[in-house]
Design a protein around this nucleic acid. Structure first.
Length: 354
DNA sequence: AATCCGTGGAT
DNA sequence: TATCCAAGGAT
């Protein structure tokens, strides 16, 4: 079995089973002359970083409607971009998305680089995304390696070296397999295979176009691959959040988080620091204003990438004559949906007002 | 090199 | 309920 034969078998499978996705130009449409738009491919790839297709779809369509071209996005207020991204997570992606759009529009005459090297210099574009854009949007034979490809190839070649140590070997294997003809379709084919057939648990090997020459399948180890280095457990941090309500209409006091770090640049209700050894008893020392604070019964629980959070929620009506300090503002109930509130803060607001 | 950075669905 | 993990990148 030559690698070129494997390649054509998978492309034939892709011609029949390619998923229909909003950002994808199907093999049939390509045959009819339609070409991928680099802006749309880039936008989808950034959104898809560490994020499921299902979670991305609505955000992608919303972004495309708000900003149909890289010029539109480059000229948009960053605040609007953060609001549109709110809830999707990994908010540095949104800030880098905006920066990248500005670079492409104002320094590169509105055109994305077509090589991996050129793409890699742009904010928010790393080795995976550069290869994906190069292959899918510009038809260049780049070796695209994401989590799906790592899983599929570690099984195909029965690579037992744990990730991430196995990455160079997998990258080399993908480079060997990737054809000069239809490299973008091939990359998407391997990713579709990983997403629909060669899944982490209970892979559907009987449906796989590569089943006959998959080493792990033949030796019965597919389920156990890829191996991964053990990850350390998450500590639990605690803190308090303060939901201050404007007596007249119930508007909620909000403020902006610092531009970098966790939830950087996003909107929040005022709160304490989050720490493992947090002392809830002293919470009110950190309240935005002296008021008639009452602790809510429900504690908001939320899990981030590297820690669990238990957030105690306090509520109070704003004292007479209170005006929001610098960097704070009132958000009326019907405006809350439009704020750049990350999910944990939506939970906090909900727990505070209900 | 190791750590930081969200979220929600599947199991 | 707890864990995994999904089209990773920046520092």
């Amino acid at each position: 079995m030559s690698s070129s034969s494997r390649t054509s078998e998978l492309l034939a499978w892709y011609d029949r089973h390619a998923r229909t996705l909003p950002w994808r130009v199907s093999p049939k449409a390509q045959a009819a002359g339609e070409r991928a738009d680099p802006y749309r491919i880039w936008l989808s790839e950034v959104m898809l970083q560490q994020t499921t297709v299902a979670a991305v779809k609505d955000y992608y369509l919303k972004f495309l409607q708000l900003w149909p071209t890289v010029e539109d996005l480059a000229k948009a207020p960053e605040e609007d971009v953060m609001k549109a991204w709110a809830g999707l997570g990994y908010y540095s992606r949104a800030r880098n998305l905006k920066k990248c759009a500005e670079t492409v529009e104002f320094e590169l005459h509105g055109r994305f680089p077509d090589t991996e090297e050129g793409l890699c210099t742009l904010p928010g574009i790393g080795p995976y995304t550069a290869a994906a854009i190069s292959a899918i949007a510009f038809n260049r034979p780049a070796a695209v390696v994401d989590g799906n490809v790592e899983r599929v190839l570690s099984r195909l070649y029965e690579i037992t070296t744990p990730l991430p140590n196995a990455k160079p070997e997998i990258k080399a294997g993908m480079a060997k397999l990737t054809p000069f003809d239809r490299p973008g379709d091939f990359a998407q084919a391997v990713m579709d295979l990983g997403a629909t057939i060669c899944t982490p648990k209970n892979p559907a090997c009987v449906l796989c176009p590569w089943t006959a020459n998959c080493k792990a399948r033949l030796s019965g180890t597919a389920q156990t691959l890829p191996r991964k280095l053990p990850k350390k457990q998450k500590p639990t941090r605690a803190g308090s959040a303060f939901v201050l309500l404007r007596p007249a209409d119930g508007a909620v006091l909000l403020r902006r988080r610092p531009p970098k770090g966790l939830l950087g640049g996003m909107t929040e209700v005022p709160g304490t620091e989050w720490a493992v050894d947090f002392d809830t008893a002293s919470s009110l020392d950190f309240a935005p204003v002296a008021a008639d604070w009452h602790k809510r019964l429900a504690v908001v629980k939320h899990t981030f990438t590297h820690f669990h959070l238990e957030l105690t929620i306090w509520r109070a009506p704003a004292p007479a004559g209170y005006t929001p300090p610098e960097g704070h503002w009132w958000s009326s109930r019907d405006m809350l949906d439009d704020e750049a509130l990350p999910t944990v803060m939506r939970k906090a607001v909900t727990a505070g007002v209900e």
